[in-house]
Amino acid sequence: MRYSLEQLETFAAVANAGSFSAAARHLGKTQSTVSTAIANLEIDLGVALFDRTSRIPGLTDAGRKLLREAELILERCLALDAHANALGEDVERKLTLAIEVPHNTLMAPLTDFAEAFPYVDLDIRHPVHGDVTTLVGDGTADFGIGFAKPRYSRDFSFTQMGKLTLIHVVSREHPLAREARVDFSVLRQHRRLIFSAHGETLPSTEYLEATRVWQADSFLALLEMMRAGLGWTTLPRQMIRHGLERGEFVELQLSAYPHTDWHVGVDLVWAKAHVMGPACNWLIKRMAQHKVFELDRNGNPTTL
């Protein structure tokens, strides 16, 4: 490459300013310096960039096409400078998050983070058996977001982000989908698909015992198994709201709990001893401000 970035900057300046003299004033250079830079660039590229037959030079066809290329190169240079500046300010290169809850509930703060720290990579882990404190405690994750636990070790700090509603659901082809009200005795006759982290921890879960149980540590795995008609399961309403609206899934109405919603808190958890950089600090504060909430049948936020 024989031409320089300074020549490309001059080329773009002349094209945008409309004349050599205006570009010279914008760049703080003499007109002769600008003219020389453009002439040398034309020699290096082997094409005429400007038509000088009129009093005000205009771009040639080749100039218009190469201008786009030059502007792309200059934009990438600005991105390189920004990335280098970020690294020079000791901003972390990567953060690791342990997320147990449905990811769609966290897109707003993650979108803001992408704009505030465009060069910090994110590694999102799903905690084994749904326990975010394991990954946070051993330093694998910088912080975690999961369903609330009754107590945390003194090594952790936490704040509640909100609550989600869990519902019992089956596919529309499942035998239970035809029941207007479901007794516990009938429920026990069918396979139960359990989120490993919840196990027997949901409210009144002792009444939901089943003789056949499949477990998974992923909501998506439970969703696909339920969709295939392999059993009934308990999932966050936000995760399957559209499937309910389309009639693809059916919410079970338990005869003993006709008016009871099953609410579970969502907590933001981090290790007290963890030394956080600027990006991690920013994201934790933004997550703490973010509220996880349920949506009604019309997609409007509801207060639990």
Rank of each mutant, 00 (worst) to 15 (best):
D155M: 08
V269G: 00
E42F: 04
A271D: 02
M239F: 12
R192N: 09
T111N: 09
N281D: 14
H126K: 11
E89Q: 13
G18E: 07
V266S: 05
R297I: 04
F158N: 01
L223Q: 12
A48N: 07
M161Y: 01
E71G: 08
Y152L: 07
V182N: 07
L45P: 08
C280N: 04
E6F: 10
N300A: 07
S157V: 01
S204M: 11
Q253F: 02
M276E: 01
L74C: 12
L208F: 15
H83Q: 14
F50H: 02
R55G: 13
M239V: 07
V14E: 10
R55N: 13
L222D: 03
D183K: 11
K291H: 15
V14D: 10
P102S: 06
A17S: 14
T53M: 12
A48M: 02
R151Y: 11
S19P: 04
G28C: 10
A12W: 07
N300F: 06
P203H: 10
R76L: 15
Q238H: 12
E6I: 11
R64N: 10
A22W: 04
L97V: 12
D61Q: 11
F20A: 10
V264M: 13
A22Q: 13
A180N: 10
E115N: 09
D90K: 10
L208V: 07
Q215F: 08
D296Q: 04
A62Y: 08
Y3G: 11
F195R: 06
E92M: 05
R178S: 14
F249D: 03
G58V: 15
D123Y: 05
E71Y: 10
I145A: 04
L235W: 06
V292G: 01
F156T: 01
G243S: 09
A288Y: 07
D142M: 00
M287K: 06
V169L: 04
S157R: 10
R76K: 13
L235V: 06
L66F: 06
L110N: 03
T33A: 15
L49Q: 00
G199V: 08
E209I: 11
G88F: 04
I38V: 14
